[in-house]
């Protein structure tokens, strides 16, 4: 049976300090803890492959260390390929995109990110459209237009490099509940796509199923995760440093561990016939190996019965 979904995993592993640990047993005995199981790319990529993932999405904040360990993007790509893993894409943040004077700088940074993503063979540059709401919102229509303008230029350049940029609207982003659909409408559908982060949309207070049905033609990829908090209040979403809660409250859960109607969503995905990368995001999980395994089980054994 033909597979429509390619499963990837967002690299929220904090900096991985080794390329490959050859003296694994001796190293283990130094401390006799499980920390050494999470310290080299060799083992982390093995975990990806063996838990059912075909891809990894890179985090830009890791690039300095990745390039320090591997020398070139191609070396990383080859190493990952030896483990049966491809780079599906990379994340990017368009900070200051709402500020007209920053336009050229933001677009250049976006183009640089496209080049980096392409150099790793990535297809998707999943892009947070702007800064956090706190300190920057609410935006007037010109601010929104400025963001759209940046995204359009970056997107056009991305297409020429074989990369798709997808808006990834965090629930605490400056474009938010009251104008994020407007932002999508202001961008050029030829160049700017959408990365549907299932939890972020619900946290923001939008209707996940309606959003998918409305924008299914723009959705180029998914960040698949669950949440137990639908429609977080403005006061919370617009507050300072909201992503990490003081009391350890988690916004995000592994698919199936929250309350989102993911099976219903998947029936709509099946009806439309989406084909491409779906990336599990486990940010906030205490144990990524357990989280990625739970997520993979859900995608393949629960959602997979609906559409794979």
């Amino acid at each position: 049976m033909e597979k429509n979904i390619r499963l990837s995993h967002m690299s929220h592993w904090k900096t991985v300090p080794y390329k490959k640990i050859d003296n694994f047993r001796d190293y283990y005995y130094e401390d006799k803890s499980n920390v050494c199981y999470y310290q080299d790319w060799d083992r982390i990529l093995r975990y990806h492959k063996q838990t059912g993932y075909e891809g990894i999405e890179l985090a830009p904040w890791d690039l300095n260390e990745i390039l320090g360990l591997f020398g070139t993007p191609q070396n990383y790509v080859d190493f990952a390929a030896d483990h049966g893993i491809a780079v599906s894409g990379m994340f990017h943040g368009c900070d200051d995109s709402h500020i007209a004077e920053k336009h050229d700088e933001v677009v250049q940074a976006g183009k640089n990110a496209v080049d980096i993503c392409a150099s790793f063979g990535g297809r998707h540059l999943n892009t947070c459209p702007g800064n956090n709401y706190y300190g920057n919102g609410p935006l007037d229509s010109q601010g929104l237009k400025n963001i759209a303008s940046c995204l359009n230029e970056i997107g056009e350049y991305a297409e020429s490099k074989g990369v798709q940029i997808g808006i990834h609207n965090e629930f605490f982003c400056v474009s938010n509940k009251y104008n994020h659909r407007q932002l999508i409408e202001m961008t050029d559908p030829r160049y700017v796509h959408y990365c549907l982060d299932t939890a972020q949309i619900a946290l923001m207070g939008d209707d996940l199923i309606d959003f998918y049905d409305t924008y299914k033609e723009r959705i180029c990829t998914f960040h698949l995760k669950d949440t137990a908090d639908i429609g977080v209040s403005d006061a919370v979403r617009f507050s300072q440093d909201v992503e990490i809660q003081d009391d350890g409250h988690r916004w995000f859960w592994e698919p199936g561990e929250g309350v989102l109607p993911l099976e219903e969503l998947w029936r709509h995905v099946a009806d439309y016939g989406f084909k491409g990368w779906v990336t599990v995001e486990d940010d906030g999980a205490p144990d990524y190996l357990a989280a990625m395994t739970l997520s993979s089980f859900y995608v393949q054994q629960v959602l997979g019965k609906i559409y794979r």
Binding site: K14, T15, V16, Q39, D247, G248, G284
Partner: peptide, 15 residues
Amino acid sequence: LDHQAPNRNKRESKY
């Protein structure tokens, strides 16, 4: 805070 380890994420929260 910089490197991967089990249970590392809670180190970002105030509690």
